Measured scan of single mutants.
Amino acid sequence: SPISQSQFIPLGEILCLAISAMNSARKPVTQEALMEHLTTCFPGVPTPSQEILRHTLNTLVRERKIYPTPDGYFIVTP
């Protein structure tokens, strides 16, 4: 029987999409709110552990794709 394939999207890209959507909705993007958003909006995607989430967010900050503030994470705009 054929095996169904799913699209692979890197966690960093999913986080950027989620942060962008939450920023547009003016929702604060904390790590907890981000986990909740991922569970709700990406039900088929396994939720990352806190450690993996933190590591991926730090990587995105180093890559200058997002930036942290006391009010949460935001997408870097050119």
Rank of each mutant, 00 (worst) to 15 (best):
G44F: 05
V45K: 03
I66L: 09
L11G: 02
P43D: 06
L53W: 05
V29Y: 01
T47D: 02
Y67C: 14
F42D: 15
T59S: 15
M22T: 01
E32N: 05
I66R: 00
M22L: 13
L17P: 07
C41H: 07
S24C: 07
E13I: 01
Y73F: 08
A33S: 12
Q7D: 10
T56E: 07
M35Q: 08
N58P: 01
I9P: 14
L15A: 10
Q31A: 09
E36P: 01
N58I: 10
T56I: 15
I14S: 13
P68E: 14
Q7Y: 09
T30G: 06
P43S: 11
Q5M: 11
H55A: 12
A18T: 07
F74E: 12
R26L: 08
L57A: 01
P10R: 15
Q7V: 08
F74R: 14
P70E: 12
Q31I: 08
Y67N: 08
P48E: 01
L38M: 06
P46F: 01
A18W: 01
F42N: 15
T56M: 15
T77V: 08
V76A: 12
I9F: 13
I3R: 11
R62D: 09
L38C: 02
L11D: 02
E63T: 09
F74I: 12
S20G: 10
L15K: 01
G44C: 09
M35N: 03
Q50V: 05
F74L: 09
Y67S: 12
T30A: 04
F8Q: 04
T40R: 13
C41V: 09
D71F: 06
P48N: 01
T77G: 09
E36Q: 14
I52M: 15
S6F: 07
Y73H: 11
T56D: 08
V45D: 04
I9W: 12
E51A: 07
Y73P: 05
N23F: 01
V45C: 12
R26P: 04
I66H: 00
A25T: 04
E32F: 04
I9A: 12
P68G: 12
M22G: 03
M22W: 02
V45Y: 14
G72P: 01
T30N: 02
Q7L: 07
A33W: 02
Q7W: 05
L17F: 07
L57I: 10
P78K: 07
P48R: 01
M35Y: 04
P10S: 08
P2A: 07
R26Y: 03
P78Q: 06
A25D: 13
F74G: 14
L17I: 15
A21I: 03
E32P: 10
R26Q: 11
I14M: 13
R26V: 07
C16A: 04
E13H: 08
L15Q: 00
L15C: 14
R64Y: 04
V76I: 02
R26C: 06
P2Q: 15
V61M: 14
I9H: 03
R64F: 02
L38E: 00
I52A: 07
I9R: 14
T40Q: 13
S49G: 08
H37L: 01
P46E: 08
A33V: 05
F8H: 13
P48C: 07
M22Y: 03
L34T: 01
M35G: 09
M22K: 01
S20E: 11
N23Y: 02
I14N: 02
Q50L: 12
H37M: 02
Y67Q: 11
T59D: 11
T30H: 10
K65G: 01
K27I: 08
A25K: 12
M35K: 02
I75P: 10
L34F: 01
L34G: 00
L17H: 14
I3S: 12
S20W: 01
P43R: 07
T30L: 03
A25G: 04
K27Q: 15
S49F: 00
L34A: 01
P68L: 13
L17Y: 10
T47I: 15
E13V: 03
S6Y: 04
E51P: 13
C16S: 07
D71T: 12
E63H: 12
P43C: 05
P10C: 05
P78Y: 07
Y73E: 07
L57G: 00
T59V: 14
L17N: 15
L60M: 05
I52G: 07
A33I: 02
Q7N: 11
P46V: 07
P43M: 03
T56Q: 09
P48M: 07
A21T: 07
S24Y: 07
L60H: 01
R62I: 12
T47H: 04
H37D: 03
G44I: 03
N23W: 02
E63M: 09
H55Q: 09
L60F: 02
Q50R: 10
T77N: 15
F42E: 15
T69M: 05
L11S: 02
Y73L: 10
L60E: 00
P43H: 12
F42R: 12
T39L: 07
P10L: 15
L34E: 00
R64W: 03
T69P: 01
P10I: 15
T59W: 15
P48A: 04
K27D: 03
Q31Y: 09
A18S: 04
G44K: 11
C41I: 05
T39K: 05
S24W: 03
A25H: 12
L17D: 08
L53G: 00
N58S: 10
L38A: 02
S24E: 13
I19F: 02
A33P: 02
V45Q: 12
S1N: 06
Q31R: 08
R54P: 02
L15N: 01
N58A: 14
A33G: 10
Y73Q: 08
N58C: 09
E51D: 14
P28A: 11
P70V: 13
F8P: 07
I75F: 06
I52V: 14
A18G: 07
R54C: 04
M35A: 13
P46L: 05
M35V: 07
E36A: 08
T39R: 13
Q7F: 08
T56Y: 03
V76W: 11
K65D: 01
G44M: 11
N23H: 06
T47V: 15
P10D: 05
E32M: 07
N23L: 02
V61R: 10
P28N: 11
M35D: 04
V29M: 02
L15F: 06
S20M: 06
S6G: 10
I66Y: 00
F8D: 11
S1E: 01
I3L: 10
R54L: 12
L60W: 01
P78C: 15
Q50S: 10
V76C: 14
L38G: 00
V45A: 07
V61I: 11
A25Q: 11
E63V: 09
I19K: 00
E36V: 06
S20I: 02
F8M: 06
